[in-house]
Write a protein that binds this DNA or RNA. Structure first.
Lengths: 231, 231
DNA sequence: CAAGCGTATTTGTATAGACATATTACCCTC
DNA sequence: GAGGGTAATATGTCTATACAAATACGCTTG
């Protein structure tokens, strides 16, 4: 035993047993010591394999109670949030960027509450368009907390998109993603070359640095857009 | 030293250094040995912390080349795919289920290619509705590969939803998720009590057991639906 | 100068042993 | 039988050590 990837081998073998119903949903599986002996590995190795299965939602583990196969294997799916530019270039399309507006204004009530801001201090409101092969790909409507990122005042967003600038200059520790379908507003329809009321795919993201809100962005995609992820 | 959660402490401290730009994007960070000495921990502990950061996309690691701060911290977000019923009950709403149709038919070309089926063997086509507090919550349109799950023929889907039955009886090893916005078809609009053409949030899922396709499901939500995940 | 090869370095993983921690199961008391 | 305290047990984590694997870098050679 003691192969080099044994924890992966063990993990996959246990996943197989769960998939094949050798270990039934809800059933208690052997303890780490026993499995270690069975697989001829150290307990730490089995532990690592089991922790990965737990993270994936295949098993549930509790001290003293042991490890049991999840009743409903609510496996997790992961998706990465790339830069729009990279997303577009990865499809082999040419990336273009167009700034639409950039101004300091007091945010509407809705934006303020979502960012958890108490007063109506002006925020930087940036709206821009990302194109793939000259076709509208994403409309970005962003509010930036000047208090958290004061240096953003001096940035020229006609050449660099707020997306890229912020990724490089405004680190965050927390983020919340929301995905929804909506009807295109008149403005969105105009920019994305759709009819008003067309369904659009909207991704919203709020980021914080510790407790301080950084930015709220609404990214609107034409209905052809697909967000795909594999498990 | 040697606290019990030291790998978490170390991970968070390193995440802080990246967030605060003490370690700049693209920069090489110290090797595991050095960090281990600095934090007064074993290398294995630092390794575990770094592996988590790598998984989260904060750093990139390569043997011999060392660990560097990711240029674009494309952090991953995770979301879990629960049972519709659990999703609804978690909101404190009452769950109801209604079967609409269930028949063996040859699938349309589109379904066949998405499932990677070569011939036009009949599949089980099930359509049903999930309600939250008597309001339409999700319309489920599903194709099931009878070849992969023959026992599904004998299931009475008037009482149990295909979602739940399959989760318990048709294990899978691979899955692909797709999210998109679409305009409600006449049928969808009718079932979800919307106007035809209203934007709907669509989640599609294909699952495989090893290479064998199990099921393709299209889950349609009214526009108020939000998929939220935190990082 | 280019190409190819060897080697040092860094991360990846395994192991055994130890202790920490959470939580169940059991026993004891009332 | 109910309640509460305690011991048993499975998992969580750390340490030190060892070897494996990938690969950047320098050296040799043509």
């Amino acid at each position: 035993m003691s192969e080099r990837n044994s924890f992966k081998v063990i993990r996959d073998e246990m996943a197989r047993r769960i998939a094949e119903r050798l270990w039934l949903p809800g059933a208690l599986i052997p303890g780490e010591e026993v499995l270690a002996r069975e697989f001829g590995a150290a307990r730490a190795t089995v532990n690592r394999a089991l922790q990965e299965l737990a993270r994936a939602g295949l098993v549930e583990r509790r001290r003293r109670a042991g490890t049991r196969v999840a009743l409903y294997p609510m496996r997790e799916a992961r998706f990465v949030i790339p830069l729009v530019r990279q997303e577009i270039e990865a499809r082999g399309a040419a990336y273009q960027y167009r700034l639409r507006s950039c101004e300091e204004v007091s945010p509407p009530e809705l934006v303020r509450t979502r960012l958890g801001l108490l007063d109506d201090t002006p925020l930087l409101h940036v709206r821009c368009l990302h194109l793939a092969d000259s076709a509208p790909y994403q409309y970005e409507d962003r509010w930036i907390n000047l208090d958290a990122v004061p240096s953003v005042r001096d940035v020229d967003f006609t050449t660099v998109s707020p997306n890229e600038w912020l990724v490089e200059n405004a680190p965050f520790t927390e983020a919340e993603f929301t995905f929804l379908a909506a009807a295109a507003s008149a403005e969105e329809a105009d920019l994305l070359q759709l009819r008003e009321g067309s369904p659009v795919f909207v991704a919203e993201r709020i980021t914080w640095l510790r407790d301080k809100p950084i930015t709220l962005v609404r990214m609107v995609h034409p209905p052809a857009h697909r967000m795909v992820t594999r498990l």
